[in-house]
C-alpha cells in the first residue's frame, strides 16, 4: 500500500437479504488506491463489481470491514456526512448517462456543484465550460441530452463527474452502452484527464480492450479479489 493511498478498505463484506434469503456478495475485500491511479475492475457478471463501486462511492454501506478515505472513517460517518463527502470528493459515471433531460449539457455538468452550493455561480459556469471543452463538446453546451448522441451524452456525464474536482471517479461500465469508436473516445478522454488532472479512476468493465488501456488491473471473482 502506497503512502498516499486515497482510500483503503479491508475485510469489506456486503450481504443482501436476511435469514434463508441471505447472500454474501462481497466476501472480505482488501483494496486501496493511490492518488492519480487508473484501474480497471474486471470480473464475470454477478461477481460484485457494481456492489463494490457503490460502496466505495458511499451510495451504500458495507456490512462489515473498514472503509477509510482521505482520513475519514466512512463506516462511522452519518448519512449526512457521507452525502457531503460524496459531493466533495467523489465523481460517478454510470453505464447509462442519467443526464437530467430538462437541463442543457452545460447545466448538467454544473449540477453536482450547484446541488452542493444551492445555486449556479459564474465560477461553476466557467469550470463547466472548460470541462465540456476538454471532452470535446464545447459546441454542444446548450444542447439538451435528447439532442445528443449516446457517446456525446456519456462524455457530458464524464465532465459532470469532474465538476467538483473529485480525487476519485468511480465508473461502472462507462462504455458498456457505446460502440467501439465512441468507447475509445471516452477512454481517451478519461486517460488524458487522469494524466492532466491527476484524478484517480476506478473503471468496471467486461471489455479486455478497455481494461488494456488501464495501468492497473483488479480482478474480482465471486466476491473476492483474485488479482490486484
Amino acid at each position: 500500500m502506497s503512502a498516499e493511498a486515497i482510500f483503503s478498505v479491508s475485510g469489506l463484506t456486503k450481504r443482501f437479504g436476511e435469514g434463508e434469503a441471505e447472500v454474501l456478495v462481497l466476501k472480505g475485500i482488501d483494496l486501496s488506491m493511490a492518488a492519480g491511479e487508473m484501474a480497471a475492475l474486471l470480473g464475470p457478471s454477478g461477481s460484485g463489481k457494481s456492489t463494490l463501486l457503490t460502496i466505495l462511492g458511499t451510495l451504500m454501506r458495507a456490512s462489515g470491514g473498514t472503509h477509510d478515505m482521505l482520513g475519514v472513517d466512512l463506516m462511522q460517518a452519518s448519512e449526512g456526512q457521507r452525502t457531503k463527502f460524496r459531493s466533495k470528493h467523489l465523481g460517478f459515471v454510470f453505464q447509462f448517462h442519467h443526464l437530467l433531460p430538462d437541463l442543457s449539457a452545460l447545466e448538467n455538468v454544473m449540477m453536482p456543484a450547484a446541488c452542493a452550493a444551492g445555486r449556479e455561480t459564474r465560477a461553476m459556469r466557467e469550470r463547466a465550460t472548460e470541462l465540456l471543452d476538454a471532452v470535446g463538446l464545447a459546441d454542444r453546451r446548450d444542447y439538451r441530452p435528447s439532442a445528443m448522441s449516446g457517446g456525446q451524452r456519456q462524455r457530458v456525464a464524464v465532465a459532470r463527474a469532474l465538476i467538483n474536482n473529485p480525487v476519485l471517479v468511480l465508473a461502472d461500465e462507462p462504455t458498456g452502452n457505446l460502440d467501439r469508436q465512441s468507447a475509445d473516445h471516452v477512454m481517451d478522454l478519461i486517460r488524458s484527464i487522469n494524466q492532466t488532472m491527476a484524478t484517480s479512476f476506478l473503471i468496471s468493465t467486461h471489455d479486455e480492450h478497455i481494461a488494456g488501456q488501464c495501468p492497473r488491473r483488479i480482478e474480482l471473482l465471486d466476491g473476492r479479489i483474485v488479482r490486484s
Binding site: L59, S87, H98, P112, A116
Partner: peptide, 10 residues
C-alpha cells in the same frame, strides 16, 4: 432515476 442521480451527485 433523475432524483436518484441528483442524490448520488450530492
Amino acid at each position: 432515476s433523475e432524483i436518484g442521480i441528483m442524490r448520488a451527485m450530492g
